[in-house]
Design a binder for these strands. Structure first.
Ligand code: ZN
Length: 312
DNA sequence: CTCGTTTGACCCGTG
DNA sequence: ACACGGGTCAAACGA
């Protein structure tokens, strides 16, 4: 079992930009290397199958909600083999015990109480009971071998805060999974057995970006679990707003700062909020959806690459 | 029109 | 070989 995981990682690692899909389609498909990513797997199949049809004009939410409720109610609170979760949970903000309040608190604490320590950076550190971190994919791409693994992980493990103001509460489980500066498109949702909450599958909207993300949200709209898969190949889609300040650069330039970054939590608003505040300045405890944090992380990413280039 | 979400069916690995 | 379950696809919709 674990071997598989390893395999997966290995496969995903080298590419970083080629959605080879470690699954197995490509192999059977017939070595479609030259072909674009996962698009032609269908070719092999070439089966005409009438898929999903939508009839219900409304009450979708109701249905979903009802289902979720039913499931939740039906399922006893047994957290069985959760620990064994093969996937890598990137962030487990609240699971179900904490709620927005806690989030707020965390946000407030910012870089004081939590940021530098609880980071999930390495699995070694005992994350808080509510937070879980896992990375499903490659901790280290071939791209920047120089860079510390931590940074990579963090990069991948981008934490996400719940950025949910009111909408999250209103909407039960959807909206943007979390604004980490990237655009995600939801391509599926399922109710998994282990979890009482529905799991949503997101994909990076970038053309060549193979990054995927699994998000489990509680009925309250709180994030119960986040799993990242793969890493972005693009700098950052974030268009308007923060034009990336030199500050970031400087910081990155300084090894010390780099360390800070590494030690700092992933590009999470919540956790990073602290770091961001500390680094940039104390603006607002509640960083917007697209706060400087992302930039920092992004910068870090880019910088990391750059750095490595320079260093070399 | 374009982009993203919703959602049932399908694919495939595992037991 | 069958059943179960997680993950993905793609049509229908909506903004
Ligand atoms: Zn991406």
């Amino acid at each position: 079992m674990e071997i598989k995981e390893a395999e997966k990682l290995v496969i995903a690692k080298p590419v970083a930009c080629r959605p080879v899909f470690s699954n197995s389609k490509p192999v059977l498909s017939g070595a479609i290397n030259a072909s674009p990513p996962a698009d032609f797997s269908e070719n092999a199949v070439a089966v005409i199958r009438p898929r999903t049809m939508r009839f219900k004009p409304t009450c979708n939410n109701d249905l979903v909600a009802a289902e979720a409720l039913g499931s939740a109610a039906s399922h006893p609170p047994k957290e069985v083999s959760e620990s064994k979760a093969k996937s890598n949970v990137v962030y487990k903000p609240i699971a179900k015990l904490v709620s927005k309040t806690t989030l707020s608190l965390l946000a407030n604490l910012g870089g004081h109480g939590i940021s530098p320590t609880r980071e999930i950076t390495n699995a070694g550190a005992p994350i808080q009971p509510s937070n879980r971190v896992n990375h499903q994919n490659d901790p280290k791409p071939d791209i920047h071998p120089d860079f510390p693994v931590q940074s990579e992980k963090k990069k991948n493990a981008t934490l996400e805060n719940s950025e949910d103001d009111d909408k999250s509460l209103s909407n039960n489980a959807d909206l943007r999974p979390l604004n980490d500066g990237h655009n995600w498109r939801k391509y599926g949702q399922k109710q998994v057995k282990g979890s009482e909450y529905p799991r949503s599958y997101f994909k990076c909207t970038h053309p060549n970006c193979p990054v995927k993300k699994k998000v489990e949200k509680t009925l309250d709209g709180q994030i119960a679990e986040i799993v990242y898969k793969g890493e972005h190949n693009h700098p950052k889609p974030l268009p308007p707003n923060h034009p990336a300040h030199d500050t970031t650069r400087n910081e990155v330039n300084n090894p010390n700062n780099i360390e800070s970054f590494v030690a700092a939590p992933p590009t999470n608003d919540l956790l990073t909020a602290g770091t961001c505040n500390a680094s940039v300045s104390t603006s607002n405890s509640s960083l917007g959806p697209s706060g400087e944090c992302e930039e920092v992380s992004e910068s870090l990413e880019a910088e990391g690459d750059d750095l490595k280039s320079k260093r070399a």
